Simulated assay, not measured.
Amino acid sequence: MKPILLSALLLLLALNGFAQQMQNDYFLGKNLICPPADAKDEEMLKLGIDCFQFEKYHPTATKIFTDLIKKDSTFCDAWFFAGYSLRIQGMVKEASVFYYMADSLSNNKSEVFKQNLATTLFMAGATKVARKKFTEMVQYFPQNPEGYYGIALTSLDIKDFENGLDCINKAIGKYTYNNQGAFYMKALLLTLTGQYSDGLHFLEKCKSQFKKDDNYNTAMAVCLYRTGGEKNDEKILKAADKAKAKVKQKDKVLPELLALLPN
């Protein structure tokens, strides 16, 4: 599976996590993981962070952080913010290199580092490495639902759907709000593991947000065909036909999900 196949889920994962982080004191230049010996370096770091407020200054921010790295290669916070500045400029592969260094230098002390690294690796198409980092999130920061969410997301590519289902259940139990992306993920994994009635239930829970997505409509059609067939219910089968007709780009649908759809 290419990451683009589940862009909506990925977008929710990234935006949920990044939005939470922007409210974190760390993004104000506080509570640094690797405080520099020179106080002026910390001031420069905060100046770079201030540059995030204006898009035209994002390249300037990158230069500030990379200059700090050249001065002190152990300054993990500079590595992180260099990665962040590259990611918001759309350079995800380059960003993941800097995030990786930040995470390595931090010795697993920062869930912000770990989450940004894992999510950006997935965005860059490095699913197996992203899975490793999401697993480390679960290991070192078990209270954070995004690690479990990430494992579930990567399960759609790695194909360990049962593991993904277990993890998305744990994530849902840890979220303090109704996460539509998590409900959608669970609906897909329920469908892929043959639990069609439960799949329908969770598809309904996230309908308002995902009803136009091709994976959503494919899963809906599959679940309706299977439950309608078991009940020999023409009304349900007609609803399945309507859901199937809404699928516009089959090449963007998970192959395993598409294979469950009747011809």
Score class of each variant (00 low, 15 high):
M1A: 14
L5V: 12
L10I: 09
L11K: 15
L12N: 11
Q21P: 00
N24A: 14
G29Y: 07
C34V: 03
P36N: 02
A39V: 14
A39D: 10
K40H: 11
I64C: 03
I64F: 00
F65I: 02
F65M: 00
F65V: 01
L68V: 01
I69G: 04
K71P: 01
D72H: 01
D72N: 01
D77K: 01
A78C: 06
R87F: 11
K93T: 05
A95Q: 02
M101W: 11
M101D: 11
N107K: 12
Q115R: 14
Q115M: 15
N116A: 12
A118E: 02
P145W: 10
G147Q: 10
Y149S: 12
D157V: 10
D160Q: 14
F161L: 02
F161I: 00
D166E: 10
I168V: 12
I168H: 13
K174T: 11
L189Y: 05
G199Y: 03
L200H: 04
H201N: 10
H201L: 04
H201F: 04
E204W: 05
Q209W: 05
D213K: 01
D214K: 06
M220R: 15
V222K: 02
Y225M: 09
A239T: 05
A239C: 06
K242Y: 09
K246E: 09
K246Q: 07
P255K: 06
L260A: 02
